[in-house]
């Protein structure tokens, strides 16, 4: 996520947003401006940061350490996230991870408070700059089809790899998803 004078970008794209007046939130001035017109403009914009990430990692009280237990993810949540991410939960600094996650949550909450008008008129153009895709003609279409048929990556060749190899549970070649029925 990037913020700068008059523009607000998420990832590599944004909604088609109407220009807004600057509005205050947190300690920054954030506003949403018009679309970029060229890749050059985007690069220049990204090369001139005018804000600090730390600004958005601060909580309401502006203290570095989050002491409010309510704002910290629980130890159980941290362990579950570690497991879901494929990390070992033994011997790790759980309190530190709790702090980091809490800050990331604050960051996300700050983002969500941004004054965005996401009433996109046309989602096909929901990009940070207007885009025009070169139309495909019939000859191109047939050529693309022909090229694609015989152009496989290794993993796309049937039987090249065993998708179940890293699974703890599988049965007769199937993955297993367990649905808890509590």
């Amino acid at each position: 996520m990037f913020m700068n004078k008059g523009r607000f970008i998420i990832g590599t794209r944004s909604c088609q947003i109407k220009p807004l007046q600057c509005s205050k939130y947190s300690s920054s001035k954030v506003s949403v401006g018009s679309k970029f017109t060229s890749m050059k403009e985007i690069k220049e914009y990204l090369d001139t940061p005018s804000w600090s990430l730390l600004e958005y990692l601060r909580n309401d009280t502006n203290t570095e350490e989050i002491t409010d237990e309510q704002k910290l993810p629980s130890v159980a949540s941290v362990k579950k996230l570690l497991k879901l991410s494929g990390f070992d939960s033994e011997g790790v600094d759980i309190p530190q991870i709790q702090q980091r996650l809490a800050k990331q949550l604050i960051f996300l909450q700050n983002l969500q408070r941004a004054p965005l008008d996401d009433s996109c008129d046309n989602t096909a153009f929901a990009r940070i700059q207007p885009r025009t895709t070169k139309p495909i003609n019939y000859k191109d279409l047939l050529q693309k089809i022909e090229d694609q048929k015989n152009n496989k990556f290794e993993d796309e060749v049937s039987g090249y790899w065993n998708p179940l190899a890293n699974n703890i549970k599988s049965k007769n070649g199937y993955f297993i998803v367990t649905k808890k029925t509590t």
Partner: peptide
């Protein structure tokens, strides 16, 4: 494709195993 398998011996909890074929 999902195949529902009830009370599989593979599952020690009281959950339901769903076999998945991609």
């Amino acid at each position: 494709r999902s195949l529902h398998v009830h009370q599989s011996p593979l599952n020690k909890t009281s959950g339901e195993d769903i076999l998945i074929d991609f």
